[in-house]
Computed example of a mutant assay.
Amino acid sequence: MIHSIKNFEEAAENILKFMSSVVPVNTLFIAKNDQRFNKIEKVINRDHVLLKSGETLPFEDTFCKLSVDHGNRILMIEDLNQNAQTKNMEVTRNLQGGSFIGIPINFSTGENYGTICGLDTEKVTFENEHMELFTTMASLLSYVLDLDRVNREIEELSAPMVPLTDGLAVLPIIGDISRKRAQIIIQSTLSQSSEQCLEYLILDLSGILRINEETIELLIQLAEMLSLIGVTPILTGILPEQAQTMVHSSLIIDRILVKKSLPDALSHIGFALVEKKKVQKRF
């Protein structure tokens, strides 16, 4: 049965499971690095636990660093104790030898994400089919990484937060709000609010085509979650017909601060819009 894959994390897990039935190594793993540290993101151990998810080492001290330096091709070391690059490494001494195979995972821009690797304390003979599998799976994971990045950009466009000053931003909510889009808006808004250390977020509803139960539920959930992370939400731009829908709804929104317009919301928190006067030049 073919299952849809939602993101890089799911793809990584499924790929390692499949590879573990083909590649004769004890441990298969995917690691992410920031050029300073190397973190094990996903791992499958067969007989012995050599690595655990979440483990972190200095990038310079890892086989993954050797793989990245090797370029966009397979690095295959069948005897760690005999290889000139690995025989004196601390990680080799800890393993007491063995084999390693790995290849970088890159974004389409060429930026490195990390590596997909195999590791064993015993000597392993890698066949061409194993090398081809690693190469193919690294390419697939690179493609999924790019999809994840595009999806994040789309999510940010679904909730285009506009910073006004330190601690203050406006979120124009535009168009129809489906349940799926509501979840995207909530996740993106919470993430951006936290990153920008907001104190106030003005939710401008003037671009919403229609207010329904799902929209009201979104506003309540978003307002409550913003409050929990220390952000005060303010609703503006509610049209008369939208106000009637809200009043007749069984959902309660009276705990959310509402102002008529953006200038009113800014005035409430001590800011004002000032019109810039044009200066006439005299010649």
Rank of each mutant, 00 (worst) to 15 (best):
E214G: 07
V162C: 03
G118I: 06
E122I: 05
M19G: 03
T236R: 08
F37N: 10
N128F: 01
G175Y: 13
E199K: 15
L157F: 10
K278M: 13
T135D: 11
E9A: 12
Q187V: 06
V91T: 08
I5R: 12
R36G: 04
R181C: 09
E155W: 04
I77E: 02
N14K: 13
S142R: 04
S227V: 10
S227Y: 11
S206A: 11
K259N: 10
I5Q: 12
T27K: 07
R46E: 08
Y200N: 11
I208H: 08
T86H: 10
D254K: 14
R282C: 02
V144R: 08
I174F: 09
M19T: 02
L57M: 12
T115M: 02
Q242W: 10
S250N: 15
T245K: 15
Q85H: 14
D47C: 04
P233G: 01
F100K: 00
V124T: 10
S21W: 11
D47W: 11
R255I: 06
N128I: 03
A31D: 09
I216V: 15
S142Y: 04
E111A: 13
I202D: 03
E60N: 14
E122N: 11
Q82W: 03
I40A: 02
E132D: 14
R93H: 12
I174K: 02
G237V: 05
R255Q: 13
M137F: 15
T125E: 07
M131H: 08
L51D: 00
Y143N: 05
S21P: 02
D204G: 07
K42H: 14
K39G: 04
R179H: 11
T62W: 05
K17C: 05
E13I: 13
Q85V: 07
H268R: 05
V144W: 09
V274A: 12
D69R: 12
V247P: 06
I185P: 11
E195K: 15
P172E: 06
L222D: 06
A84E: 15
G118D: 02
L147P: 00
